[in-house]
Design a binder for these strands. Structure first.
Lengths: 159, 159
DNA sequence: CACAATTAAGTTGCGCACAACCCAATGACG
DNA sequence: CGTCATTGGGTTGTGCGCAACTTAATTGTG
């Protein structure tokens, strides 16, 4: 791992004022894009009655079957502090059912209800709508993802 | 505006299953990067006693002088619902002072206190630390920002 | 001038993210 | 076998972001 260190060429030579603006905008434009996505998803998911994080949780369950809370958390990078209330809301919405695992009483397995499974149909057009809203080609999207993955990796190492 | 429409070449031909994965990961990797930034900033700002959004607000005040809440909100793309409590926290922390504008009683001008202005010194090394943590060159950073700006613009139009 | 529309802040309520805890079940080791 | 560390979930508290609403001041218009 850590191919060549590449410690950001020509970085040390920049004045602080320049850096101030730059860095401000990296994270800032990232958040701006993230927030813009939020708006589009909010609109797209409104009549499904789901928020974006709830939609992600449902997607995981739609793709793989019933899963323990732990696994869902790993896929979405969410801890129990976030996931527990989220799943409770999905449960009160009647989309999901939670059961203590018999062989390990610590674990809770999350199942889709019929309503939850049925919701998948109505969620199918969402991804295309989102991708179209980006105005980007598939190649650009993939490229962006690669850049972001690299960035996340670096930041993760630094944290 | 809207140079060539470029409606994402070759998009319509993709199967839904492919789209599902793609779109999932665009927004998802965006959030992952955003969250990773959050961790690095949290660490960097810990001994300043600031959160990242609070840091942004302070940066705006450090750069331009006293500003009305409205203007700060425009710069950071935050509404009063977010900004009011945030500024109140900065005020109770003794970094900021709020005054009703005499000529327009609706407006509240936010001033730095001496402590708030003094904090700038300790915040100066932060940007460089963040940029180094990204592991990216300045050119890459600028490129990413351009891509994100385009993306945000498209998403904003769609919302 | 009076009255409607707009504007700037603030408040409330909901949901998410994160940290710091707690509890119960499990597993490991002497 | 008994103790202790670990693990899976949950709860609490703080702060952010957004929507919807309230209040007060200002502006615009008949």
């Amino acid at each position: 791992m850590t191919p060549p260190p590449t410690p950001a060429p020509g970085l040390a030579g920049l004045p602080d004022t320049e850096l101030l603006k730059l860095d401000h905008q990296v994270c800032f434009s990232l958040q701006a894009a993230s927030r813009a996505f939020g708006g589009v998803y909010r609109e797209a998911l409104k009549d499904l009655g789901l928020t974006y994080p709830q939609y992600l949780a449902m997607m995981v369950l739609w793709e793989h079957g019933p899963l323990p809370v732990k696994t869902i958390g790993e896929r979405l990078h969410l801890d129990s502090g976030t996931l527990s209330p989220l799943l409770k809301r999905l449960e009160t919405a009647g989309l999901v059912r939670r059961e203590r695992s018999p062989e390990d009483e610590r674990s809770v397995t999350v199942h889709l209800t019929d309503a939850g499974a049925g919701l998948r149909e109505r969620a199918l057009p969402v991804p295309r709508a989102i991708l179209e809203a980006t105005g980007m080609s598939v190649e650009e999207v993939l490229d962006l993802q690669r850049t972001l993955a690299r960035l996340t990796e670096s930041l993760g190492r630094a944290a």
